[in-house]
Computed example of a mutant assay.
Amino acid sequence: MSFLIGQNMTGGYGKGPDILHDCTIEVDKGEIAVIVGPNGAGKSTAMKAVFGMLNVHSGTVFLDGEDITHLTPQARVQKGMGFVPQTHNIFTSMSVEENLEMGAFIRKDDISETMEQVYELFPILKEKRNQHAGELSGGQRQQVAVGRALMTKPKLLMLDEPTAGVSPIVMDELFDRIIEVSRTGLPILMVEQNAKQALEIADKGYVLVQGANAYSGSGKELLADPEVRKSFLGG
């Protein structure tokens, strides 16, 4: 059994129509799993379903063998889920270091070692630790958001469009950092618009269309699939 399994998830927001249809997403320790697909395909919705932010009418979510389908997002954080939303993911009026400290709000132990690990991973954050996070560039803000999630010492890291709005150079740098994090054994589930680049670093890839699994396989398999290339990767 994979560390995280969102199995046969069907659901939507409130009393609205179902957006996900029998969708399954998995990621294991040390893996990067990437969800890609066209706009409106339900990519972020699938991630939110795993995190408990919408009504899953059928299907189950397992984390480390435990059924967490009916837990609140807050309870899932306590169980070890770290979630970085696409927008509004930092406190702009706080310093970089205060943002990181906020990430550790559920911890009762000494956070200094984790803080040093985050600074090691993102050296620019150490340099700017006393600066207001709102003054940072888009790429640096994303590093703060990821760093803050890592401060919880999560067992699973979920990233919703981590490279949205950043330059190609910054995107490559963020992907390099994400690979480094996964090498520590932490499973990473990521929704990404830059499908080709994301699949290049993915152990598992899921192509969603209209809220359902259209294709799945390793990143390499999906990149090599002529149908996937033609329909989703611009040939």
Results as ranks from 00 to 15, higher is better:
191 V>S: 03
169 I>E: 15
161 E>A: 08
163 T>F: 03
171 M>Y: 04
163 T>D: 15
178 I>N: 04
187 P>Y: 04
182 S>T: 02
163 T>M: 10
194 N>D: 11
195 A>V: 02
174 L>I: 07
185 G>H: 07
178 I>E: 03
172 D>E: 15
172 D>Y: 09
191 V>Y: 01
162 P>K: 06
172 D>F: 05
185 G>S: 05
162 P>H: 09
195 A>L: 11
200 E>Q: 15
181 V>K: 02
200 E>G: 14
200 E>T: 10
199 L>W: 02
204 K>R: 15
167 S>V: 00
194 N>Y: 14
184 T>F: 04
177 R>W: 05
164 A>E: 15
192 E>D: 12
187 P>S: 06
181 V>I: 14
183 R>A: 12
201 I>S: 00
177 R>Q: 14
183 R>F: 06
189 L>N: 07
164 A>Y: 12
200 E>C: 11
173 E>K: 11
187 P>G: 03
203 D>P: 06
163 T>Q: 12
194 N>H: 13
189 L>R: 02
176 D>T: 05
184 T>N: 10
176 D>H: 14
181 V>P: 02
175 F>V: 00
170 V>Q: 04
204 K>V: 03
202 A>L: 06
164 A>N: 13
194 N>E: 13
161 E>V: 01
194 N>F: 14
191 V>C: 03
195 A>C: 10
201 I>A: 01
194 N>C: 09
178 I>Q: 01
181 V>T: 04
171 M>C: 10
186 L>H: 08
203 D>W: 07
160 D>N: 10
202 A>M: 07
166 V>F: 10
191 V>R: 01
175 F>D: 03
193 Q>P: 09
185 G>A: 11
162 P>G: 08
176 D>C: 02
168 P>N: 11
197 Q>S: 14
186 L>V: 00
183 R>D: 13
190 M>W: 10
200 E>I: 00
190 M>Y: 13
189 L>P: 03
178 I>A: 02
168 P>A: 12
163 T>K: 04
205 G>F: 04
179 I>H: 13
163 T>P: 11
183 R>W: 08
201 I>N: 00
204 K>Q: 14
197 Q>L: 12
205 G>Y: 11
201 I>L: 12
193 Q>F: 08
187 P>A: 02
194 N>G: 08
201 I>R: 01
205 G>K: 04
197 Q>M: 14
195 A>I: 02
193 Q>T: 05
165 G>Y: 07
168 P>F: 12
185 G>M: 03
188 I>C: 04
194 N>V: 01
199 L>R: 01
189 L>F: 11
197 Q>I: 00
189 L>S: 06
192 E>Y: 06
